[in-house]
């Protein structure tokens, strides 16, 4: 599969910072690139699919919003596929697997509070994502109808 390595590497850095709050190691970057070279499944189709990936590359904060939207409205799209691939690489590679597997030990009350706050942030990200990307979806709907 022909890919633009610079673009994929840059995307890998942004997405890694989104997922684990750290820059990608050369190993992770190479694995991510290799997966893109091996399979066409990470090539976005035109339209919302492609726009989501382009926008998500801007910064980790934007990735979160784009991904929150994708989870609800494009769960099988290329952005989700790329992020899940990266997550799988990170959870099997040092040092990142620790950031995915391990939670600091907390009291039951603190753990419940932490969970509630995390979920609330997630719901917030989804709300922002829906507001920010809904116009994109509507536009695509109009394009599709015109094309028919």
């Amino acid at each position: 599969m022909k890919v633009d390595p610079t673009l994929i590497e840059q995307e890998c850095h942004v997405f890694t910072r989104f997922l684990v709050r750290a820059p990608a190691t050369p190993y992770v970057r190479d694995k991510y690139l290799e997966a893109h070279r091996l399979s066409g499944t990470f090539v976005p189709a035109a339209g919302v699919d492609s726009a989501l990936v382009t926008v998500a590359r801007w910064s980790p904060a934007v990735t979160r919003v784009a991904d929150a939207y994708a989870r609800l409205c494009a769960p099988r799209g290329v952005l989700r596929r790329k992020l899940v691939l990266l997550l799988a690489i990170l959870e099997t590679s040092p040092p990142f697997f620790r950031a995915i597997d391990y939670e600091p030990s907390r009291s039951w009350a603190m753990a419940s509070l932490h969970l509630a706050v995390t979920a609330t942030i997630g719901i917030g990200a989804a709300a922002v994502g829906m507001i920010a990307f809904l116009p994109l979806r509507l536009t695509e709907g109009v394009w599709k109808r015109r094309g028919e």
Binding site: R64, D67, T118, G122, A125, A126
Partner: peptide, 8 residues
């Protein structure tokens, strides 16, 4: 049902 960072 969240973005992947929150889900993680």
């Amino acid at each position: 049902p969240f973005d992947l960072r929150t889900s993680l």
